[in-house]
Amino acid sequence: MAKAFKYGLKGIRGYLEPAERELLRSLFDDVISMLAPAKQASQDPLAALVGLDPEAREPSDRALRRLLPNVMKNDGDASLEFRRYTERSLRESKIGALKAAALTLDREDLVLTAADARHWATALNDVRLVLAERLDIRDDADADNIHLMQDWSQAEDVESYLALVYNFTTWLQESLVQAMVHSLDARH
């Protein structure tokens, strides 16, 4: 069984079983492939250099739309314009965090630096946002229902399996954030 992340002298330490590492690696990879653009949107090297993507559109996939939301609530045109300037680098920074988190899974000891921990926190958060869309978690009541699924022997179908995975990543992220809060407090 995994152990909660703990903040200590050497950084933030966690422990994961090999199967849990495999699970997380595949979750991180899944979100990376969602975020990777289907094609090189713009071949213009200057546009690519400044992160401009004239082809950017609001994603049709719900989960992707949650990862890359509109910047204005009631102005689709302005949001689209903004998206063309920012979405590519947002995708890249999310992919960067997911890749960095995945790399630490290769270490024998799971000891995270402050930068590793930030990558892990956002990577786990993005994984949870995607799982939540797949599980159709729309409000706190939905979230509470999913939270009741804690016993792996209950995993009968894809949805119950996803719910258990969601709860595992929620627990892991909560313990990580607590450890990060301790490290923040320790610096003050």
């Binding site: 939301p69 910047v71 609530k73 903004f82 920012t86 947002l90 920074s93 956002t122 958060n125 993005d126």
Partner: peptide, 18 residues
Amino acid sequence: VEQHAVAMHGYGLWATVE
């Protein structure tokens, strides 16, 4: 605030500007 919004999206928070 737009710069902050992008940063918040990076963290996975749901942010808009108005």
